[in-house]
Design a protein around this nucleic acid. Structure first.
Length: 731
DNA sequence: GAGCACTGC
């Protein structure tokens, strides 16, 4: 979100001296701005579509324990409803209204906005809580958070007793977390209601044993019920969705009441092609130039499937541009996808040079995660790259599939945020009708090991019988149960094992990484394993731009370990750590902590740039590292290092990743031992073409081929020695 | 010698 500051003049050479002067001269105007801003905020709030149905909505929540709200974009439901409920007294006795979001940025930005609207400091009445960043206090009553975080909270407080209301926002996105949360909340609601009734029955019995008169008994019961409800009120549940189909949610909650709140979007004209296109990249290119040459001003947003496609289109646009007359060349291309370094991602927010039109070439990052201002035209070829999971092969694949209707609507909506817009769908209207209504929920296309471990830890023993909004396939559930059993997290009768299963559930990691950590304390290499799993838990650490591919390769060689990628990643982490340690020594003790942090951040970013390392990923890995280290310390696992004896570390990898082992075959390919598939070591691995006999790998992904990624050399014999329960069984 | 959308604990 561009702040007001950014609109002001920018002067990078500004000296320290100048700053206070600027600040002083701004102060009187700043105060006036604050007042007028408050007025503007108030007016904006009152003009939101949801404002006109405030009383009705509050009444609906009072009348129903579950309410489905279908609110179109721009209705104001996310920011306003929690405030309505707070003002209507839904936070008795310090209880909290919790609002979950699938994404971190959304939780943060909405909380900031609502705090401003309330005239409260962030973290007081209104706050947010996301992983690594908690801005709440004991006085927080409206709390925005990620859905994953609420799931974690449920592990510590199964009744979610702090909350009087929970609002699940963006439920139509159907992330794994949202789906699991809905099932959990349904149970919590039932359990809380039951606890109130149980208390009442017990009390009633007590009362009957006494000699009190019937009326007194009645009065006592009512009184007790009131007390119970004050201590433990029933949980109000609100599901908010942007999808037009509320039926699924309503039916899931036993025919729950659904209401519709109007949105406010500008009109977007939709155009289709007459015939199906054979090459959507080519069609997109033609459409870009049609808009550029024939339509009025306004930026263009093109949805493509991946980095390669984006880079390809970017080159083609540049080529075509050269063929145009000078005056028509005022077009700039800006790519955006998740693995792009943040500085380059920021380019989408910068306005095009005067008189120029901006073409943003984006993945579905621009569908929900990033909102780009100034878009008037959307080009939607109708495809998306999606992850799918084959439970039988235990393999993920990335495939290009058509979007759903809901996604197509979401994409076209991006053209109507600031004014009327146009959306060009590069397929015939008849094709639109054939699209699925909504995207297949993630829970039906992912590995369930983590979900199952969580549910087990929450006391749900019968996973197949769990009341999922939409049930994953039995095969997928069985596969993950089997994996958890083989990792030692489950007992023979499918209960969480003690202590291993409980420890694994406590760690916010993939189960296999958690297992590796637990074993590492026995192999005396927990320090190394903490770094390895932190680095494996983030997006690619190495950044490899096409135009500097050779340089990037050379840079990576400095960190490469002949033993494999895990040790290579550890080398990167330690090199960065040493850099910061050295800095700390140089600086000594400086008064201003914040200052040091900022400087270190800058130095680290520079180092990352020089070494072709994605600084965002590295930062993320550091955060995970310190969080996990804390958990591990609390569990009392001894943290020690194997030093230069990497044999211990590799043996530990073999003991924990034994399900992911691959053996070299005569013709040079590898055979994954668990599934028998023929695979290859990914070209980005340091062991690519190294001809080692046996490796363990982090993941098996099918793209153009079946690849194993992040591999480490092990001795084949270690498998039968360290995982006899699996390899002896296999014969 | 390939290329990987996006979230999240």
């Amino acid at each position: 979100m561009p702040s007001m500051e950014q609109n002001g003049p920018r002067n990078t050479t500004q000296t320290r001296k100048q700053k206070p002067v600027l600040k002083l001269s701004n102060q009187p105007r700043g105060a006036a701005d604050a007042i007028s801003r408050r007025e503007i905020v108030k007016k904006q709030r009152e003009s939101l579509p949801i404002a006109s149905v405030k009383e009705r909505l509050v009444q609906e929540v009072k009348d129903h324990d579950v309410l489905i709200i279908v609110g179109e974009t721009g209705s104001g439901k996310t920011t306003q409803l929690p405030q309505f409920l707070f003002n209507a007294g839904f936070c008795p006795n310090g209880k909290v209204i919790g609002i979950t979001q699938p994404r971190r940025v959304a939780a943060v930005t909405v909380a900031k906005r609502v705090a401003e609207e309330c005239g409260a400091e962030l973290g007081q009445k209104v706050g947010y809580s996301i992983r690594f960043d908690d801005k709440t206090s004991s006085s927080t009553r409206i709390k925005y958070m990620t859905d994953g975080l609420l799931l974690r909270e449920a592990l510590l407080d199964p009744y979610l007793s702090r909350y009087s209301v929970i609002i699940v926002d963006e439920a139509h996105e159907r992330t794994v977390h949202t789906d699991v949360l809905l099932g959990l909340l349904k149970n919590v609601q039932r359990a809380r209601l039951k606890s109130v009734i149980d208390h009442a029955v017990v009390n009633n019995k007590k009362a009957s044993n006494g000699i009190t008169k019937e009326e007194e008994k009645g009065a006592e019961l009512t009184n007790f019920l009131k007390q119970c409800q004050r201590k433990f009120p029933p949980l109000k549940l609100i599901i908010m969705s942007a999808s037009l189909d509320a039926r699924l949610f309503s039916e899931y909650f036993g025919g729950a009441r659904a209401v519709h709140v109007e949105g406010r979007q500008h009109h977007v004209d939709i155009f289709y092609t007459l015939h199906a296109e054979t090459d959507y990249v080519d069609a997109a290119l033609i459409t870009i130039f049609q808009i550029h040459l024939e339509e009025g001003p306004g930026d263009i947003l093109v949805f493509l499937t991946g980095q390669e496609e984006i880079e390809g289109v970017e080159r083609l646009v540049q080529e075509q541009l050269q063929k145009l007359p000078e005056e028509s060349r005022k077009l700039v291309t800006v790519p955006i996808f998740s693995s792009l370094p943040s500085e380059q991602q920021m380019r989408v927010f910068m306005p095009a040079p005067a008189g120029h039109r901006k073409v943003i070439l984006a993945t579905n990052i621009a569908e929900t995660s990033v909102t780009i201002p100034g878009i008037k035209y959307v080009i939607d070829p109708g495809f998306i790259k999606a992850r799918s999971y084959d439970p039988v092969k235990g393999m993920e694949s990335l495939i290009i599939i058509p979007t759903s209707k809901a996604q197509a609507l979401q994409r076209s909506g991006r053209a109507g945020r600031e004014g009327p817009g146009k959306c060009f769908r590069l397929y015939p209207e008849s094709e639109f009708e054939k699209l699925e209504d909504s995207t297949k929920p993630e829970i039906k296309r992912c590995n369930l090991s983590n979900v199952i471990l969580q549910l087990k830890a929450l006391g749900v023993d019968d996973i197949i019988g769990f009341d999922f909004l939409e049930k994953p396939s039995r095969a997928a559930i069985q596969k993950s149960l089997e994996e958890l059993f083989l990792l030692g997290a489950l007992t023979d009768d499918c209960k969480l094992s003690d202590p291993v299963g409980h420890q694994m559930a406590r760690l916010p990691l993939d189960p296999i990484y958690s297992k590796a950590l637990i074993l590492a304390s026995q192999f005396n290499c927990l320090e190394e394993m903490l770094i390895a799993v932190s680095m494996l838990s983030v997006e690619s650490i190495f950044y490899n731009p096409r135009e500097k591919s050779e340089e990037a390769k050379t840079a990576k060689k400095c960190f490469a370990s002949p033993d494999g990628d895990h040790l290579t990643l550890i080398n990167v982490y330690r090199a960065a750590d040493e850099l910061l340690q050295k800095r700390r020594m140089e600086l000594g003790i400086e008064k201003n902590e914040k200052n040091i942090k900022g400087k270190n951040e800058k130095i680290l970013r520079k180092w990352c740039r020089e070494n072709f390392i994605n600084s965002r990923s590295l930062r993320h890995a550091c955060d995970i590292h310190s969080q996990i280290r804390g958990h591990v310390e609390q569990m009392g696992l001894p943290i020690s290092s194997c030093g230069d004896d990497t044999l211990q570390f590799r043996r530990c990898l073999a003991a924990s990743f034994f399900l992911n082992a691959a053996l070299k075959q005569p013709e040079g390919t590898y055979r994954a031992l668990a599934s028998g598939q023929v695979v290859q070591i990914h070209p980005t691995s340091v062991l690519h073409q190294s001809k080692v006999q046996c490796v363990i790998f982090d993941e098996l992904v099918q793209t153009s081929q079946k690849y194993i990624r992040n591999t480490t050399r092990i001795d084949y014999l270690w498998l039968t020695e360290l995982a006899p329960h699996y390899y002896a069984m296999q014969g």
